[in-house]
Protein backbone atom coordinates (compact mmCIF):
# COMPACT_ATOMS: atom_id res chain seq x y z
CA UNK A 1 0.00 0.00 0.00
CA UNK A 2 2.78 2.38 1.00
CA UNK A 3 4.58 1.61 -2.21
CA UNK A 4 1.49 2.51 -4.17
CA UNK A 5 0.99 5.68 -2.18
CA UNK A 6 4.57 6.72 -2.69
CA UNK A 7 4.28 6.12 -6.37
CA UNK A 8 1.11 8.18 -6.37
CA UNK A 9 2.75 11.30 -4.91
CA UNK A 10 6.08 11.10 -6.68
CA UNK A 11 6.89 13.47 -9.52
CA UNK A 12 7.33 11.47 -12.74
CA UNK A 13 10.38 11.64 -14.93
CA UNK A 14 10.10 13.57 -18.24
CA UNK A 15 9.88 10.30 -20.08
CA UNK A 16 7.13 8.98 -17.85
CA UNK A 17 5.33 12.33 -18.20
CA UNK A 18 5.40 12.03 -21.96
CA UNK A 19 4.02 8.52 -21.73
CA UNK A 20 1.09 9.64 -19.58
CA UNK A 21 -2.38 9.80 -20.97
CA UNK A 22 -3.83 13.32 -21.33
CA UNK A 23 -6.16 12.67 -18.41
CA UNK A 24 -3.29 11.59 -16.19
CA UNK A 25 -1.29 14.65 -17.17
CA UNK A 26 -4.18 16.97 -16.41
CA UNK A 27 -4.76 15.29 -13.07
CA UNK A 28 -1.13 15.72 -12.21
CA UNK A 29 -1.15 19.40 -13.16
CA UNK A 30 -4.28 20.01 -11.14
CA UNK A 31 -2.82 18.13 -8.21
CA UNK A 32 0.25 20.32 -8.30
CA UNK A 33 -1.95 23.39 -8.61
CA UNK A 34 -3.93 22.42 -5.52
CA UNK A 35 -0.86 21.90 -3.36
CA UNK A 36 0.95 24.90 -4.79
CA UNK A 37 -0.05 27.26 -1.94
CA UNK A 38 1.59 24.91 0.51
CA UNK A 39 4.57 24.41 -1.78
CA UNK A 40 5.06 28.15 -2.17
CA UNK A 41 4.71 28.66 1.59
CA UNK A 42 7.13 25.86 2.31
CA UNK A 43 9.63 27.19 -0.19
CA UNK A 44 9.46 30.80 1.04
CA UNK A 45 9.12 30.30 4.76
CA UNK A 46 10.85 27.02 5.46
CA UNK A 47 13.17 25.91 2.72
CA UNK A 48 14.69 29.29 1.90
CA UNK A 49 15.34 30.19 5.57
CA UNK A 50 16.98 26.80 6.06
CA UNK A 51 19.29 27.39 3.13
CA UNK A 52 19.86 31.00 4.19
CA UNK A 53 20.86 29.92 7.70
CA UNK A 54 23.34 27.46 6.21
CA UNK A 55 24.85 30.21 4.08
CA UNK A 56 24.86 32.64 7.02
CA UNK A 57 26.83 30.15 9.08
CA UNK A 58 29.75 30.61 6.69
CA UNK A 59 29.66 34.39 6.88
CA UNK A 60 30.23 37.08 9.46
CA UNK A 61 26.89 38.85 9.38
CA UNK A 62 26.77 41.67 11.89
CA UNK A 63 23.54 43.56 12.15
CA UNK A 64 25.53 46.66 13.07
CA UNK A 65 27.39 46.63 9.78
CA UNK A 66 24.18 47.26 7.95
CA UNK A 67 22.06 44.84 6.02
CA UNK A 68 23.01 46.55 2.80
CA UNK A 69 26.63 45.54 3.20
CA UNK A 70 27.36 42.11 1.83
CA UNK A 71 28.56 39.81 4.61
CA UNK A 72 32.06 38.48 4.34
CA UNK A 73 32.59 34.79 3.65
CA UNK A 74 34.62 33.39 6.53
CA UNK A 75 34.72 29.72 5.64
CA UNK A 76 34.59 27.39 8.62
CA UNK A 77 35.49 30.05 11.18
CA UNK A 78 32.14 29.92 12.97
CA UNK A 79 32.31 26.14 13.16
CA UNK A 80 35.88 26.17 14.46
CA UNK A 81 34.83 28.72 17.04
CA UNK A 82 31.86 26.52 17.87
CA UNK A 83 34.06 23.58 18.73
CA UNK A 84 36.21 25.78 20.96
CA UNK A 85 33.38 27.51 22.76
CA UNK A 86 33.61 26.66 26.48
CA UNK A 87 30.02 27.75 26.95
CA UNK A 88 29.04 24.71 24.89
CA UNK A 89 31.52 22.02 25.70
CA UNK A 90 32.88 22.44 29.23
CA UNK A 91 31.84 19.56 31.43
CA UNK A 92 31.45 19.14 35.17
CA UNK A 93 32.46 21.95 37.50
CA UNK A 94 30.57 23.18 40.51
CA UNK A 95 28.11 25.11 38.44
CA UNK A 96 29.12 26.77 35.21
CA UNK A 97 29.05 23.75 32.93
CA UNK A 98 28.82 23.89 29.18
CA UNK A 99 25.41 24.06 27.57
CA UNK A 100 25.71 20.69 25.90
CA UNK A 101 26.74 19.01 29.12
CA UNK A 102 23.84 20.69 30.91
CA UNK A 103 21.44 19.44 28.25
CA UNK A 104 22.77 15.89 28.46
CA UNK A 105 22.83 15.92 32.26
CA UNK A 106 19.23 17.04 32.34
CA UNK A 107 18.28 14.47 29.71
CA UNK A 108 19.68 11.65 31.80
CA UNK A 109 17.16 12.58 34.48
CA UNK A 110 14.28 13.81 32.36
CA UNK A 111 14.13 11.19 29.61
CA UNK A 112 13.66 8.10 31.82
CA UNK A 113 11.03 9.94 33.82
CA UNK A 114 9.37 11.21 30.65
CA UNK A 115 9.11 7.68 29.23
CA UNK A 116 8.72 5.40 32.21
CA UNK A 117 6.30 7.46 34.26
CA UNK A 118 3.61 7.80 31.59
CA UNK A 119 4.18 4.17 30.64
CA UNK A 120 3.70 3.08 34.25
CA UNK A 121 0.59 5.19 34.61
CA UNK A 122 -0.75 3.91 31.30
CA UNK A 123 -0.27 0.31 32.43
CA UNK A 124 -2.18 1.12 35.60
CA UNK A 125 -4.90 2.89 33.65
CA UNK A 126 -5.19 -0.13 31.36
CA UNK A 127 -5.68 -2.54 34.22
CA UNK A 128 -9.19 -4.03 33.93
CA UNK A 129 -9.42 -4.15 37.73
CA UNK A 130 -9.10 -0.37 38.04
CA UNK A 131 -12.39 1.25 38.95
CA UNK A 132 -13.06 4.70 37.56
CA UNK A 133 -10.32 4.49 34.96
CA UNK A 134 -11.99 7.20 32.86
CA UNK A 135 -11.82 9.59 35.79
CA UNK A 136 -8.15 8.85 36.37
CA UNK A 137 -7.33 9.20 32.71
CA UNK A 138 -8.98 12.60 32.65
CA UNK A 139 -7.28 13.59 35.87
CA UNK A 140 -3.83 12.68 34.57
CA UNK A 141 -4.48 14.26 31.22
CA UNK A 142 -6.01 17.47 32.56
CA UNK A 143 -2.75 19.26 33.46
CA UNK A 144 -1.67 18.80 29.85
CA UNK A 145 -4.38 21.16 28.64
CA UNK A 146 -3.22 23.95 30.95
CA UNK A 147 -1.08 26.44 29.02
CA UNK A 148 2.52 25.51 29.59
CA UNK A 149 3.67 28.91 30.78
CA UNK A 150 0.78 29.15 33.24
CA UNK A 151 1.66 25.72 34.57
CA UNK A 152 5.25 26.78 35.05
CA UNK A 153 4.18 29.79 37.08
CA UNK A 154 1.95 27.55 39.19
CA UNK A 155 4.84 25.22 39.84
CA UNK A 156 7.04 28.18 40.62
CA UNK A 157 4.62 29.11 43.38
CA UNK A 158 4.39 25.59 44.71
CA UNK A 159 8.15 25.17 44.72
CA UNK A 160 8.97 28.55 46.22
CA UNK A 161 11.59 27.68 48.85
CA UNK A 162 9.97 29.86 51.48
CA UNK A 163 6.29 30.13 50.73
CA UNK A 164 5.60 27.09 48.54
CA UNK A 165 3.42 24.42 50.10
CA UNK A 166 5.88 21.68 49.19
CA UNK A 167 8.63 23.08 51.37
CA UNK A 168 6.14 24.06 54.02
CA UNK A 169 4.90 20.49 54.05
CA UNK A 170 8.45 19.22 54.36
CA UNK A 171 9.10 21.56 57.26
CA UNK A 172 5.81 20.56 58.88
CA UNK A 173 7.04 16.98 58.69
CA UNK A 174 10.12 17.96 60.63
CA UNK A 175 12.67 18.65 57.89
CA UNK A 176 14.85 21.52 59.13
CA UNK A 177 14.59 24.77 57.21
CA UNK A 178 18.24 24.55 56.27
CA UNK A 179 17.65 21.14 54.70
CA UNK A 180 14.66 21.84 52.48
CA UNK A 181 15.55 22.18 48.80
CA UNK A 182 16.05 25.57 47.26
CA UNK A 183 14.53 24.11 44.08
CA UNK A 184 14.98 26.34 41.04
CA UNK A 185 17.58 28.51 42.79
CA UNK A 186 19.98 25.68 43.50
CA UNK A 187 22.53 24.43 40.97
CA UNK A 188 21.82 20.81 41.93
CA UNK A 189 18.10 20.89 42.61
CA UNK A 190 17.19 22.91 39.55
CA UNK A 191 17.18 19.82 37.29
CA UNK A 192 14.86 17.74 39.46
CA UNK A 193 12.72 20.87 39.71
CA UNK A 194 12.38 21.05 35.96
CA UNK A 195 11.61 17.33 35.80
CA UNK A 196 8.88 17.73 38.41
CA UNK A 197 7.41 20.62 36.46
CA UNK A 198 7.49 18.46 33.34
CA UNK A 199 5.37 15.77 34.99
CA UNK A 200 2.31 17.82 34.19
CA UNK A 201 3.07 17.28 30.54
CA UNK A 202 2.98 13.50 30.58
CA UNK A 203 -0.74 13.25 29.85
CA UNK A 204 -0.23 13.11 26.12
CA UNK A 205 2.41 10.38 26.27
CA UNK A 206 0.19 8.48 28.68
CA UNK A 207 -2.70 8.52 26.22
CA UNK A 208 -0.47 7.28 23.41
CA UNK A 209 0.76 4.45 25.63
CA UNK A 210 -2.81 3.57 26.59
CA UNK A 211 -3.73 3.42 22.92
CA UNK A 212 -0.74 1.16 22.32
CA UNK A 213 -1.64 -1.08 25.25
CA UNK A 214 -5.21 -1.42 24.07
CA UNK A 215 -3.94 -2.57 20.72
CA UNK A 216 -2.24 -5.61 22.21
CA UNK A 217 -4.34 -8.67 21.28
CA UNK A 218 -5.90 -10.25 24.36
CA UNK A 219 -5.17 -13.65 22.85
CA UNK A 220 -1.49 -13.09 23.58
CA UNK A 221 -2.24 -12.45 27.24
CA UNK A 222 -4.43 -15.55 27.32
CA UNK A 223 -1.63 -17.58 25.81
CA UNK A 224 0.83 -16.21 28.35
CA UNK A 225 -1.55 -17.08 31.15
CA UNK A 226 -1.90 -20.62 29.82
CA UNK A 227 1.90 -20.83 29.73
CA UNK A 228 2.01 -19.84 33.39
CA UNK A 229 3.68 -16.46 32.91
CA UNK A 230 3.60 -14.11 35.89
CA UNK A 231 2.85 -10.37 35.61
CA UNK A 232 6.43 -9.31 34.97
CA UNK A 233 7.02 -12.07 32.43
CA UNK A 234 3.80 -11.09 30.67
CA UNK A 235 4.86 -7.48 30.55
CA UNK A 236 8.42 -8.30 29.52
CA UNK A 237 7.52 -10.82 26.80
CA UNK A 238 4.12 -9.68 25.60
CA UNK A 239 3.30 -6.11 26.48
CA UNK A 240 6.69 -4.53 25.95
CA UNK A 241 7.38 -5.98 22.51
CA UNK A 242 3.88 -5.15 21.35
CA UNK A 243 4.08 -1.52 22.45
CA UNK A 244 7.74 -1.09 21.62
CA UNK A 245 6.90 1.01 18.49
CA UNK A 246 5.00 3.39 20.76
CA UNK A 247 7.90 3.53 23.22
CA UNK A 248 10.25 4.15 20.32
CA UNK A 249 8.04 6.94 19.04
CA UNK A 250 7.96 8.61 22.45
CA UNK A 251 11.68 8.13 22.88
CA UNK A 252 12.51 9.81 19.58
CA UNK A 253 10.18 12.70 20.36
CA UNK A 254 11.65 12.94 23.85
CA UNK A 255 15.22 13.13 22.56
CA UNK A 256 14.32 15.78 19.99
CA UNK A 257 12.43 17.71 22.65
CA UNK A 258 15.37 17.45 25.00
CA UNK A 259 17.77 19.05 22.54
CA UNK A 260 15.22 21.78 21.97
CA UNK A 261 14.52 22.30 25.69
CA UNK A 262 14.04 26.01 26.06
CA UNK A 263 10.77 27.33 27.42
CA UNK A 264 11.08 26.23 31.04
CA UNK A 265 14.48 27.82 31.75
CA UNK A 266 13.38 30.89 29.83
CA UNK A 267 10.32 31.36 32.01
CA UNK A 268 11.46 30.00 35.37
CA UNK A 269 14.94 31.52 35.41
CA UNK A 270 14.35 34.35 32.95
CA UNK A 271 16.71 32.81 30.43
CA UNK A 272 19.69 34.05 32.41
CA UNK A 273 21.18 30.63 33.09
CA UNK A 274 20.50 31.09 36.79
CA UNK A 275 21.47 29.68 39.15
CA UNK A 276 25.13 29.92 38.33
CA UNK A 277 24.76 29.09 34.66
CA UNK A 278 23.18 25.73 35.48
CA UNK A 279 20.20 26.35 33.21
CA UNK A 280 21.97 27.63 30.13
CA UNK A 281 20.68 24.78 27.97
CA UNK A 282 22.00 24.49 24.44
CA UNK A 283 18.86 25.77 22.79
CA UNK A 284 18.62 28.67 25.23
CA UNK A 285 22.22 29.59 24.49
CA UNK A 286 21.39 29.38 20.80
CA UNK A 287 18.45 31.73 21.31
CA UNK A 288 20.53 34.19 23.29
CA UNK A 289 23.31 34.09 20.72
CA UNK A 290 20.82 35.06 18.05
CA UNK A 291 18.58 37.52 19.76
CA UNK A 292 20.45 38.85 22.78
CA UNK A 293 24.05 38.79 21.62
CA UNK A 294 22.90 39.39 18.03
CA UNK A 295 25.61 37.14 16.67
CA UNK A 296 23.61 35.86 13.72
CA UNK A 297 26.26 33.91 11.87
CA UNK A 298 27.49 32.11 14.95
CA UNK A 299 23.91 31.41 15.94
CA UNK A 300 23.29 29.89 12.52
CA UNK A 301 26.31 27.63 12.99
CA UNK A 302 24.97 26.61 16.40
CA UNK A 303 21.59 25.83 14.86
CA UNK A 304 23.21 23.56 12.31
CA UNK A 305 25.19 21.80 15.00
CA UNK A 306 21.93 21.25 16.85
CA UNK A 307 20.38 19.82 13.70
CA UNK A 308 23.32 17.49 13.16
CA UNK A 309 23.28 16.33 16.77
CA UNK A 310 19.57 15.57 16.64
CA UNK A 311 20.03 13.82 13.32
CA UNK A 312 22.89 11.66 14.60
CA UNK A 313 21.05 10.67 17.76
CA UNK A 314 17.86 9.96 15.85
CA UNK A 315 19.69 7.86 13.26
CA UNK A 316 21.39 6.02 16.09
CA UNK A 317 18.04 5.33 17.71
CA UNK A 318 16.64 4.09 14.44
CA UNK A 319 19.72 1.90 14.13
CA UNK A 320 19.04 0.32 17.48
CA UNK A 321 15.35 -0.11 16.73
CA UNK A 322 15.89 -3.35 14.88
CA UNK A 323 17.13 -4.91 18.12
CA UNK A 324 14.21 -3.99 20.32
CA UNK A 325 11.31 -2.58 18.37
CA UNK A 326 8.77 -5.11 17.18
CA UNK A 327 6.35 -4.34 14.37
CA UNK A 328 3.51 -6.82 14.28
CA UNK A 329 3.16 -8.46 10.93
CA UNK A 330 6.73 -7.70 9.87
CA UNK A 331 8.59 -9.77 12.38
CA UNK A 332 11.83 -8.46 13.78
CA UNK A 333 13.47 -6.53 11.03
Amino acid sequence: MFEELNRGISIPSPKAYREMTPIKRREMREGLLYISPWLVGFFLFTFLPIIASLIFSFTNISIMDGILNAPEFVGLRNYIQLFNDPQIWTGGGSGTSGSLWITIKFGLIALPVGILLPLGIAVLMNNPNLKGSMFFRSAFYMPYIIPFVAAIFLWGGMLNPETGWINRSLMAMGVPRSMVPNWANDVVWVYPTYVIMGIWGIGNAMLIFIAGLQGVPTSLYDAAKVDGANSWQTFRNVTFPMISPVIFYNLVLGVVGLFQFFLVPLVVNNGTGRPGGATMFYNLYLYKTFFTFQNMSYGAAMAWLLFVMILVVTVFLFGTAKYWVYYAGEGRS
Binding site: T96, R274, G276, K288, Q294
Partner: peptide
Amino acid sequence: WTESFARIQTFGDLLNNT
Protein backbone atom coordinates in the same frame (compact mmCIF):
# COMPACT_ATOMS: atom_id res chain seq x y z
CA TRP B 1 29.72 43.15 25.74
CA THR B 2 26.32 41.61 26.29
CA GLU B 3 27.64 38.08 26.44
CA SER B 4 30.74 39.01 28.44
CA PHE B 5 28.76 40.96 30.99
CA ALA B 6 26.25 38.13 31.27
CA ARG B 7 29.07 35.63 31.82
CA ILE B 8 30.39 37.66 34.75
CA GLN B 9 26.85 37.87 36.12
CA THR B 10 26.65 34.08 35.88
CA PHE B 11 29.84 33.81 37.89
CA GLY B 12 28.37 36.15 40.49
CA ASP B 13 25.15 34.21 40.49
CA LEU B 14 27.06 30.99 41.11
CA LEU B 15 28.83 32.53 44.08
CA ASN B 16 25.58 33.99 45.33
CA ASN B 17 23.69 30.72 45.29
CA THR B 18 26.21 27.96 45.90
